[in-house]
Design a protein around this nucleic acid. Structure first.
Lengths: 236, 236
DNA sequence: TGTATTTTATTTGTCGACAAGAAAAATACA
DNA sequence: TGTATTTTTCTTGTCGACAAATAAAATACA
């Protein structure tokens, strides 16, 4: 037995292409869960020594994140978590509502039987998170649920834009649930169930209508919250 | 005069942050103009010595291009120009038509006076390219024209998806014009003019209608072409 | 004391080198 | 001659180091 693997070193064993993905996933989650709030500085060197790797894979992960708009990079200067433009959320809401509609509609049109169990799975995960009042899981599984619907619609262009919007939505909702833990999520569970039914029945118009209503519901709630909050903490 | 710039060396002087952008722009143009056809291998080392720089900035440009779907990277193996899925262009057309509509509509709604000269500028560039029958310029300025309209609509989410679609469209149209140099571009010039008029008049419904018609016009033409061509060169 | 200029420090952008992975080539074996 | 195995080659992924660009600190000067 050739002892190439001298296990006196803790965990320096990392597979070759895995470093970038590890950093990317880590930072992405921390950004979307607001562990890294908007504006947080991101230090390459610090990350490198924390994760015990060179700056190169970290840099690559940062480039990817910048491409998705999750971080901003000032040339020759610091890089930081992208800010949320709270003062002008309308473009975001417009895009979100349209993508909700289009992806739900396309799901009713193009889904395959094997897609439904996956969608139902996320639906149940979301319902469970609502039961246990686990806000973070609730937000993440809600996004996963709608992303799965979008996938079943089989239009990669819409799916990728929608994913980006859902990501941004995770950050916004995170603020929402951290201020008020409202009781309305049960309503969302019911609406999700209705959407699944429409998709399974291939009822395109109903899916469109439900997607639109669901989206406008969310938008309205969030806008209401911000209207209340802005009276207090405009500071930031 | 301090002679820091000893000009015995040809062009080794490159500004610090410019390498990545240079490579990115170069490859992007070559990909979109089909100078690098779909499937072309991209060799980092070769590019590095051709452009007289290290692999690092080239790598970063490739990561960005991969993020936009213009190249595909097989782990630990080659990276190559992304293929075009000619067999299933429908998702592309669906997304394109919707984005044409939405961006033109939003332009009519949200544009500012200073946007119009920019849009008209690309319009004239396009008209000039049609006059001189310069296919490559025609394709590029057409994309720039619609991108400018999208910008004036001021929804960055729609704009970035539309840009990606227009890029992909450049590659597809490139094939079109290289096979047949049709005479229909003049029609597009007229439709462009009508769109500008609707935007300037802030006629949202007209803009929506024109955007949709224009998009469907293009889609129909391209589909017609491929129907003809597929009888001959299914090979690839 | 307040402003302008120089110096230091910190962080990024780029480089050359090396090793891991996978394909291609070469060899062994039937 | 055809298949399996080893060797070689080639490309990528990662590393540590250095230099440029900027910000912060320190100094000079009024």
């Amino acid at each position: 037995m050739t002892d190439i693997d001298t296990d006196n070193s803790p965990i320096p064993e990392r597979k070759r292409g895995s470093g970038v993905k590890m950093v990317y996933d880590l930072l992405r989650d921390e950004i979307l869960d607001l562990v890294l709030p908007p504006g947080s500085p991101i230090d390459e060197v610090q990350l490198a020594e924390r994760l015990k790797m060179s700056r190169t894979p970290i840099r690559e992960a940062l480039v990817r994140l910048a491409g998705e708009g999750l971080i901003d990079t000032l040339p020759n200067r610091s890089t930081m978590v992208a800010n949320i433009d709270f003062l002008n959320l309308n473009p975001f809401f417009d895009a979100l509502v349209l993508m909700y509609r289009v992806t739900t509609r396309l799901a009713a049109q193009n889904h395959r039987p094997e897609d439904l169990p996956i969608i139902r799975g996320f639906h149940e995960d979301y319902a469970a998170a609502v039961q246990t009042r686990d806000a973070l899981t609730m937000i993440a599984t809600n996004a996963a649920f709608h992303a799965a619907i979008a996938e079943s619609g089989r239009n990669p262009y819409f799916t990728s834009l929608f994913r980006r919007l859902l990501d941004e939505g995770r950050r916004i909702l995170r603020l929402y649930y951290q201020s008020y833990d409202e009781q309305f999520p049960q309503r969302f569970v019911d609406e999700h169930a209705a959407m699944i039914a429409a998709i399974a029945a291939r009822d395109v118009e109903a899916a469109d209508r439900l997607g639109k209503a669901h989206a406008e519901q969310i938008v309205e709630q969030v806008q209401k919250l911000f209207a209340r909050n802005n009276k207090l903490d405009i500071a930031l």
